[in-house]
Design a protein around this nucleic acid. Structure first.
Lengths: 163, 163
DNA sequence: GATAGTAACTATGATAATCATAGTGGCAAG
DNA sequence: CTTGCCACTATGATTATCATAGTTACTATC
């Protein structure tokens, strides 16, 4: 590839987002961060990405202010990666991607009846399906309002990757 | 690059979406399609992508059932690209990306006071800001419910690209 | 009827991002 | 003092991307 064209100059908001989010590695790493995986090796294993790519993307995300590197121990110094407020605010995007995939990206019989990832509204306990507004209580759904539960098939896959 | 790793095998819904959406060119083309640009050359000019990339991605989107190619004239045969239902359902993702960028991706003074792209709820006329539920009437917002109006700066940029 | 124009692509070659695999540095535990 | 853990960096083959130019199939103008 040549140097990838720079979109940060555009005034279009989708273009600006695409500059960061139009990258498979970035999306997968963000997914893991939202899932609560904060360690380098865990992210690398679970995304299936090589360490070089993970390293490059985490640096990028940090420079964009989406991710923050925190030492969780000295001697030897070890780091974890945490989402900043700007990063947490990307939840809506990932949640929309998940909703679309649940509706369109699975063949019949591929999931065990339900969605690949089930979300429960913490406030009222309702299964929200793929809605952006809780079907139980009508509240808008954002980061922190939801509790995710992977299906059996997804759990098995994650266990396989970690192992 | 080597052959890009295949994510379509994963059970994770974000992974499946990322397989298609984790690509700058795909996102930009989708943006244009939602904007109502359906002609090859218009899309190429407005996205700034080379014709080869546009061609490859439109073929991909068509094979994924997101886009449909329709002849709008015979002799010579000319095609337009239309979003399918599966494609239109991606609106939530692009809208979430736009919302995030409006909140985080502009420096002060870069936009002329308002957002780069303003959305009005057709049903009640309210400016929805970056909300997923109309702040005026409380209805959830989806594709077709909104009317977009680019800011002066964004309009100027689009005119420049088209010219 | 030769030339110019339009729309939707395809062809070519240089560049650089990606993957797989292996290796490094700092430290603790056995 | 060897093994293991964790967070990376280094290397080399592969291939996607960009910029630019060219092609195809017509219609319209001179």
């Amino acid at each position: 590839m040549p140097k990838r064209a720079d979109l940060s100059a555009t005034f279009c908001p989708v273009g600006r987002s695409a500059e960061l989010l139009g990258d498979r590695a970035v999306l997968l790493i963000l997914r893991d961060l939202f899932f609560g995986n904060r360690r380098f090796d865990v992210i690398a294993a679970n995304t299936g990405l090589g360490p070089q790519l993970v390293s490059a993307r985490l640096k990028l995300l940090e420079s964009e202010g989406v991710v923050e590197r925190r030492a969780y121990q000295e001697r030897p110094v070890r780091y974890e990666y945490w989402l900043t407020d700007k990063g947490k605010d990307l939840f809506d995007v990932l949640y929309a991607m998940r909703g679309w995939a649940e509706r369109w990206a699975y063949r019949d019989g591929e999931t065990d009846g339900g969605p690949a990832m089930r979300y429960i509204h913490r406030a009222c306990g309702a299964d929200v399906g793929t809605a952006v507004v809780c079907p139980g209580c009508g509240e808008p759904l954002g980061y922190g309002d939801l509790k995710g539960e992977p299906s059996a098939a997804l759990k098995a896959e994650q266990a396989r990757r970690a192992g």
